[in-house]
């Protein structure tokens, strides 16, 4: 038995030693779950060409991905990270501190957040301010600017605007753990909140309170956290025509036969309005490349070339079939050109 124990210990030690010396022949990618389906599709196509092994893609969330990506240079750290928002200055600095100085940024495309409803339900023309009034925990008294903040009294859409139908407010949306929720809070709720001048002024005087007021969602049952799975939300909306759903635009696109998207500030969610930046609740998606690993881990340059090729993220590329809202032509050309030289990101 003693022999076996020493053997096992020796084996483990040998493996550990080997791991340190090991070099990688496979690209490692971490980051956002929103970008994950696009990156895995590119990874699979990339491997299908038969020259390189398929990259390993892990969905860790944007923030988690940045942490892993910025931890340092060397094959034990990932080569690329997906992000459903731009890299923050603080993350860039953290990267630099750990020696990750040369970073190449690929803007992949856009992801819109749809406010959708069953085709058999009522149709309205929302503004972000009205959306905030429907969902906020506390709203100004009388739904007017400058009013004292009171717990949200709005029960039906008619309470918010007299032109709306008297239908109960019932919104199905993502839980706080979701990246979609982060973007929704920031792009929809905060923007809607800031359409009230007195609340906007709060941002300067008391940023903490501003965030709490603007991004807190009511907890009286009008907003239902429907889980991470957008498919479930789609099914629930079809079953309940009066309910409104909040989810990624690609799911609206795939279910156009059953759902329509509400116009926000008069703009309908479509590929074009999201791509041109007119639709207000849309975010950019990025992939970041660690340039120090190019040439060390085989295939990174080729993978970037595949990702930025017009057959992938172009207007008629295969990623569009997976629900990507592609970049407008001029921006695509810029990204495509930049990918050839991999210019450094600076902040």
């Amino acid at each position: 038995m003693k022999k076996a124990v020493t053997m096992a210990a020796l084996c483990a030690a040998a493996l550990v030693g080997q791991a340190h010396a090991q070099s990688r022949d496979q690209i490692r990618i971490v980051g956002s779950s929103t970008v994950y389906p696009f990156t895995t599709t590119v990874a699979e196509r990339f491997a299908k060409a038969g020259k390189f092994k398929a990259p390993v893609v892990e969905s860790t969330g944007t923030g988690g991905g940045m942490k892993l990506f910025c931890a340092g240079v060397g094959t034990q750290h990932p080569d690329l990270t997906n992000a459903s928002r731009r890299m923050k200055k603080s993350e860039f600095d953290e990267c630099g501190k750990n020696g990750v100085k040369d970073i190449f940024e690929i803007k992949v495309g856009f992801d819109g957040i749809a406010i959708a409803q069953s085709k058999t339900g009522p149709k309205f023309n929302l503004t972000l301010g009205q959306l905030w009034l429907a969902l906020a925990k506390e709203v100004p008294e009388g739904n007017k600017d400058g009013g004292k903040l009171i717990p949200n009294p709005n029960k039906t859409w008619k309470d918010i605007d007299a032109s709306f139908p008297a239908v109960k407010i019932e919104v199905l949306g993502p839980p706080p753990t979701s990246g979609t929720r982060d973007s929704f809070n920031e792009l929809a709720l905060e923007a809607g909140c800031d359409s009230f001048p007195s609340l906007k002024a709060l941002a300067k005087s008391d940023a903490k309170k501003h965030k709490a007021v603007c991004q807190s969602i009511r907890e009286d049952g009008a907003y239902v956290e429907a889980g991470e799975n957008d498919n479930v939300i789609v099914q629930k909306l079809v079953a309940n025509p009066n309910a409104v759903g909040v989810f990624g635009f690609s799911f609206l696109d795939q279910n156009k036969d059953k759902l329509y998207g509400h116009t926000i500030n008069g703009i309908e969610p479509t590929f074009d309005t999201i791509s041109s930046g007119k639709y207000p609740i849309a975010r950019d998606m990025y992939v970041y490349v660690k340039k120090a690993h190019v040439g060390v881990v085989p295939g990174i340059a080729e993978f970037v070339a595949e990702y930025t090729a017009s057959r992938a993220m172009g207007k008629r590329g295969y990623l569009v079939g997976k629900g990507l809202v592609p970049l407008p032509d001029d921006e695509f050309k810029k990204v495509n050109d930049a990918a050839k030289t991999m210019t450094n990101l600076s902040m």
């Binding site: 791991a19 496979q26 490692r28 892990e58």
Partner: peptide, 13 residues
């Protein structure tokens, strides 16, 4: 994670 290639050793992803 999304790993297309089956591992050939305990050190592969």
């Amino acid at each position: 994670a999304f790993i297309a290639a089956p591992p050939v050793s305990p050190l592969d992803p």
